[in-house]
């Protein structure tokens, strides 16, 4: 077995997860100016719901579909019924509210499913694909292809379509966008829905390879946040930061050892933060 090939495979899979979670956070941040700390809960909700529904005898496809819908309802409901009525509150308070929502979800998941981890079967069954001394499960290939594909699709949607630009405008200046006829409220709910969908897809694809429990949500939010922060909250940048983080994590884990993963990772984070703040430090600004 070739360690390098396997590290690349592992890095691609981990990177896809970073990207999946990161882009949803970026999207909501860019449209609603909120760092949604309950974002990872869409992952946990989908996973727990799918596991419970499949366990109750529903066909896998139906269980997954229903679980994705529940996650979507959560993501849009969080905006519509919790955050929107408080739109005038300070951003810091709203972030705390999303954190509170994350803990409420945890509680509900414990009540529904207990504390033990759960899982459900893979969608893509079959022997792993072997190449260059590495092995990759079919589900892992789906995770990588869909993870980067869908995230790239979201990036293109934002940068190149009319609806995407309306979303960006609604984010940058909701007042100006409204005056130009843009339905800002619809743009925001669209952003939450896309974010929820991406979190749910990440769950559907990744959880069969690991497991999910009531506390997976915040861990996923953190992953997404690291990728999003490194990209500078850019919907296209998060694709590269996610991929880079995944490969980096796998390589450090394989060649230096998992004990070095966190120290090295956080050093990189600090360096990136210093790099991104260089303009501020030197008194300039990149924005006109």
């Amino acid at each position: 077995m070739n360690l390098f090939t396997q590290s690349v495979i592992s890095g691609l899979m981990t990177g896809a997860v970073y990207t999946f979670l990161g882009i949803g956070l970026v999207l909501v941040y860019r449209t609603a100016r909120i760092l949604n700390l309950a974002h990872g809960e869409t992952f946990a909700i989908t996973g727990v719901a799918a596991a419970l529904l499949a366990g109750a005898g529903l066909p896998l496809g139906a269980a997954l579909g229903l679980a994705i819908l529940i996650s979507l309802a959560f993501a849009t409901g969080l905006h519509r019924f919790v955050l929107r009525p408080r739109a005038e509150w300070p951003a810091g308070t709203l972030i705390l509210i999303t954190l509170g929502a994350a803990f409420v979800v945890r509680g509900v998941l414990i009540l529904l499913a207990g504390t033990d981890p759960l899982s459900f079967p893979v969608m893509f069954e079959g022997p792993p694909v072997r190449f260059a001394g590495g092995a990759m499960p079919l589900q892992g290939i789906a995770l990588v292809v869909l993870g980067f594909g869908v995230s790239a699709g979201v990036g293109i949607f934002l940068a190149a379509t009319r609806a995407g630009k309306q979303l960006l405008a609604a984010a940058e200046n909701p007042y100006a966008a409204e005056l130009l006829g843009v339905n800002v409220e619809r743009a925001r709910i669209t952003a939450y829905a896309i974010g929820g969908l991406l979190g749910a897809l990440a769950g559907v694809l990744l959880i069969p390879l690991i497991a999910v429990d009531f506390q997976s949500g915040l861990a996923m939010t953190l992953r997404g946040f690291i990728a999003a922060a490194i990209s500078g909250m850019s919907p296209v940048g998060v694709l590269f930061s996610g991929l880079g983080l995944g490969l980096f994590e796998a390589m450090v884990g394989a060649y230096l050892g998992a004990l070095y993963q966190d120290p090295v990772m956080f050093c990189v984070l600090i360096l990136v933060a210093l790099w991104q703040s260089r303009n501020i430090r030197f008194g300039g600004s990149r924005r006109a």
Binding site: R162, K165, Q166, L168, A169, E172, N173, Y175, A176, A177, L179, L180, G181, V182, N183, R287, A288
Partner: peptide
């Protein structure tokens, strides 16, 4: 009802053409 707001409120991160294209919402 068209309003040219005080302070202009140009979308700084969108191009001139994209600023104009936003009005296609109508």
């Amino acid at each position: 009802i068209g309003l040219v707001p005080e302070g202009r409120h140009i979308l700084a991160t969108l191009s001139v053409r994209d600023n104009l294209a936003l009005t296609r919402a109508i």
